[in-house]
């Protein structure tokens, strides 16, 4: 009987060494003993499909269609940053309040700060890795930009070169205006003096 137990022990050791432990890294697709209805025949986002020639389940928009949510000409200000006479808007066409600035700060931190830096000085983390051309918001030319021009750069990418690509897919027009407002706040903050700080808040800054 001892031999039977010994053989069983060996088989268990063999099985465990073949199957491994929980959490072990593996590259092959996960084992599915009972596939149930885990994989059903319908199209999933960003998935493959053998039906279409380009192999994608997601279908591109047919040419010349416009989504119902996209701007009408009357709303050029909000969606294109332009006034009716085709000049850039000088002011932000939505109400600028603390809520908008907070949203702008949040979005700026996600999408802009990696390159432009938390201060808007162009010294984001990517500068150490080779993004050498990121400019500061604080030079003369960029201080002079109108709100509409900043909005346009976020929407369509940089106008002078292709160093910054469009962010329209990541930021909705409302969010873009929030970011413009926050960029304005950064520009203002970096050119401020202690006299600009309300007396009540000076202690927080150690002034």
């Amino acid at each position: 009987m001892r031999h039977v137990y010994f053989a069983t022990f060996l088989i268990v050791v063999l099985a465990v060494s073949a199957l491994g432990f929980r959490g072990d890294r593996f590259k092959h697709p996960p084992l599915e003993l009972f596939p149930d209805m885990d994989h059903q025949a319908h199209l999933k986002p960003q998935a493959e499909s053998a039906f279409f020639t380009d192999g994608r389940a997601d279908r591109p928009l047919p040419p010349n269609v416009v989504a119902a949510s996209l701007p009408l000409d009357a709303e050029d200000g909000l969606f294109r940053g332009k006034a009716t006479d085709n000049s850039w808007l000088k002011t932000i066409p939505v109400a600028v309040d603390a809520k908008l600035l907070a949203r702008g700060q949040d979005r700026y931190g996600i999408y802009c700060a990696p390159c432009h830096g938390a201060l808007g000085d162009g010294n984001g983390i990517t500068k150490q890795y080779g993004m050498s051309t990121t400019p500061s918001y604080l030079d003369e030319r960029r201080l002079g930009l109108t709100a509409g021009e900043i909005f346009n750069v976020i929407t369509n990418g940089s106008t002078q070169n292709k160093n910054m690509l469009p962010y329209a897919d990541k930021l909705s027009p409302e969010d873009r205006w929030a970011v413009v407002a926050y960029v304005r706040a950064l520009q203002r903050a970096q050119r401020g003096s202690p006299a600009d700080v309300p007396a009540a808040n000076r202690k927080e800054l150690g002034l």
Binding site: T8, L19, R25, F26, K27, P30
Partner: peptide, 22 residues
């Protein structure tokens, strides 16, 4: 042994955790 094996292996905790495809 069979019960212990099923308990340990017949679950996503073993079958899926650690999946790191190339």
């Amino acid at each position: 042994i069979a019960m212990a094996g099923i308990n340990y292996y017949a679950t996503n905790k073993w079958a899926n955790v650690g999946y790191a495809p190339v």
